[in-house]
Design a protein around this nucleic acid. Sequence first.
DNA 1: TCTCATTGTTGAACACGTTCAACTTCCCAA
DNA 2: TTGGGAAGTTGAACGTGTTCAACAATGAGA
Lengths: 239, 239
Amino acid sequence: MSTPAEESGGTKGERTRAHILATALQLFREHGYESTSMRAIAEKAGVSVGNAYHYFESKEHLVQAFYALTHAEHLAACEPLLEHEKDLAKRLRIVLETKLETAEPYHHLSALLFRTAADPKSPLNPFSAESSPVRDEATELMQRVVDGSKVRIPADLRAELPSLLWLYEMSVILFWIHDESKGRARTRELIERTCSLVSRLIGLAGNPFLRPMRREVLDLVAGLRTGTETARARKRPRS
Amino acid sequence: MSTPAEESGGTKGERTRAHILATALQLFREHGYESTSMRAIAEKAGVSVGNAYHYFESKEHLVQAFYALTHAEHLAACEPLLEHEKDLAKRLRIVLETKLETAEPYHHLSALLFRTAADPKSPLNPFSAESSPVRDEATELMQRVVDGSKVRIPADLRAELPSLLWLYEMSVILFWIHDESKGRARTRELIERTCSLVSRLIGLAGNPFLRPMRREVLDLVAGLRTGTETARARKRPRS
DNA sequence: TCTCATTGTTGAACACGTTCAACTTCCCAA
DNA sequence: TTGGGAAGTTGAACGTGTTCAACAATGAGA
């Protein structure tokens, strides 16, 4: 929530940048994204519109910057909670519930993030190159969730699991965005029930009976990911 | 693609409306959505901007109208193809591939449709009340796909299946929007492989071994759908 | 102290989606 | 024939996100 850089650190430019971002987020929270004009942000921040655009390519990029902020917050908040938990379902639940908590103040802003989820051209699109750092970090978090658990997972599945779980996380967030229930009770229920389901499904996937189908699904997923993938060679020599 | 109403039928207003829509679609196809201004549409259609807004609440509503158009086309195109096919996987594939074909000329417009997929406030959002007629029809199509197949399906699953398959269709479309491969080869492959998978999964769901998990999933899905549901009592006395 | 390029900043101007009060055209009941 | 309401249409005006040529401050090397 606070922007350390705003206070004093860095060059003058960095301070101005941080100040504009902080002002924008405050206005977004108070009046919503659509009702907050760039002029209003600039005026409240005490700069000109042009200057705001010097630091942020577009109004949407302000949201992208905010996204990176809460994402870092999420990572930090998860770390200690994951420390002493070995159960996969519970580890998953920690990650998702923490996500909800850190993002709650910006519920409607997140909606905007996802509004462009399907626009291949938007920088906010979670699949875009511009959000790849955040996406990769989120995927790595899922990697850690899996690796830190005591569950036994077939090697082929283990390789694809982080991406699949990230997709699962995105789906939960999509649901959350539409969730107007009190205290986001419906999303919380969804998380509670699906975490257990997902983890049991992973257990089930080890069943020899399901091996052919598992292979097929994983082949498919791996094939699809190639080409959508940005940077970051995840290749691993065939074992 | 053609708009019958444009030629002569209906009142003057209806003809103007159809003409504006046809002009808009043509310009969207030629220059893309963003690069086509309402002024350009109005000018080319030979009307004033204000008049365009008399018939379409917003620029996005033009897309909504187009959506309804291609949707009707899709339904009509599926009908004869489903006539003599009893295999569930193949029936699913017919529906999805037909969808691709009817929507192809408007690939990037569809992107726009989905750009707002996560914006609870947009009329284009597939979950919104305004798109509920189209959504319901698409779900009913899936109902027909299932009912017309010779596969045996547990009653509880059968009740939820159309909604689930619609969600599956949406996912495929989401993938298609991001697909820039030649001839949308990647999406076609996705369809080919997942149709078979989905149908086998449905077969698998009948397995008594999986009954508890199936029940749990269906309970969850049913619970979640309530509250998101719009109008249209789908209730049916328990058989 | 004096360059002068880098960095930071400005605000008028542009095209856009959208609104609305006023206008015209149409057609039917009197 | 005519009055008047409904249907159809207009375009100037508003606020928006965004651009850009110009200006100011900074600070390191001469």
